[in-house]
Design a protein around this nucleic acid. Structure first.
Lengths: 190, 190
DNA sequence: GGTTTTATCTTGACACTGTCTAGATTGTAT
DNA sequence: ATACAATCTAGACAGTGTCAAGATAAAACC
């Protein structure tokens, strides 16, 4: 995280990581470019070379968080052996992510460019990688389970909304409940 | 919104309203005490008499939003004639509120002192009025419908989480879908 | 290898913000 | 009418995002 020479070498990435640490420690309202610069041992105007504005910096932090979220989901996909369990696995990874990054929920809900289009017939391709990943993985499984094809988009959205809502409740109060929330997901799946 | 004499007369309330307008126009990250003061035609340090810090001001805005949310739910309770429809009515009011206040979702998920305690046996009394209202109204109805008593807390939480998740998705993309999301709620209730 | 070009970082400045202090104005109680 | 308390103003300070000018070093080019 320190710099030795005049040029840092990996500033952009480390500014983002510093930003995430700041958000997780003090909340999404306490993101500061100057503090991030200080954390990286660099002058207050150095970030300007990598982010033209604070908003652009904030976007980069959000993008990184979305990538991290995607990694959590991708990991269980890679490890999965029983296709019938993939939806439950992703649900658990979903909650686990927001447990590890409690402020991420507030961050994501504050994002405006996420497209999760709804339709009775189909779910259009989303620009939000975690959701898109969930759609791709769960669709064939639900179909195989005999869910009518035209019901699948709604089912997927229902699952995503439910787990999102739970994660949101958890995130707001620090995940102080370890009960069997998975039963709710099961009731939707079964 | 203007002041004529030296004393404003209703500054605290109008500062809060100005804060909500700012948030709804520019997002939750653009709340400013000085701008709120300017909107009310008052000097930059005037808010200090009513809010000791920006954080305290922000809390007051959040509290007001929670009260407004409660009013939306209370209204359908007061107007309700068929008890069997109260859960659906509240679900619709829920979504309607976040349609009228799209930034409210980001605001609420950024709140830390909301207590919605989960338990397999009971839902403890919540300090969040809208949720508490929903618990009180839906519990007897669900019981009357023959839901096993020990399943009721989970069912309530499931409904709340689902509608929250949907409202969140809607809020992120501007409620551009007018389809029959209510079917999802029905599937949980029935 | 020496030179030029480009990317990156620093310094200093500006306007804006939250916060503090001291003092001005006005409503309220005595 | 006077004293008191609540409310608002004015000015100052440190911290913030942003901009402009210049310093440094890496990369590209001959």
């Amino acid at each position: 995280m320190e710099k030795t020479s005049y040029h840092h070498g990996n500033l952009k990435q480390e500014l983002i990581l510093a930003g995430i640490r700041m958000i997780e420690e003090d909340g999404i309202g306490h993101l500061s470019l100057r503090k991030a610069a200080a954390m990286c041992g660099v002058s207050h105007a150095a970030p300007k070379s990598h982010f033209q504005s604070k908003e652009e910096f904030e976007e980069a932090v959000k993008d990184y968080v979305a990538e991290e979220f995607t990694r959590y989901l991708q990991e269980v996909i890679d490890k999965n052996t029983n296709k019938n369990e993939i939806i439950r696995d992703m649900g658990r990874a979903f909650v686990r992510f927001f447990k590890d990054y409690p402020q991420a929920y507030a961050l994501i809900t504050n994002q405006k460019d996420i497209r999760i289009c709804l339709s009775e017939k189909e779910i259009q391709k989303s620009n939000y990688a975690p959701f898109q990943l969930f759609v791709e993985q769960s669709s064939p499984v639900l179909l195989e389970w005999g869910i009518p094809e035209k019901m699948i988009p709604q089912k997927i959205l229902e699952l995503w909304a439910l787990v999102s809502g739970l994660a949101g409740i958890y995130a707001m109060q620090g995940f102080n409940y370890e009960g069997d929330w998975m039963e709710m997901v099961n009731r939707i799946i079964d």
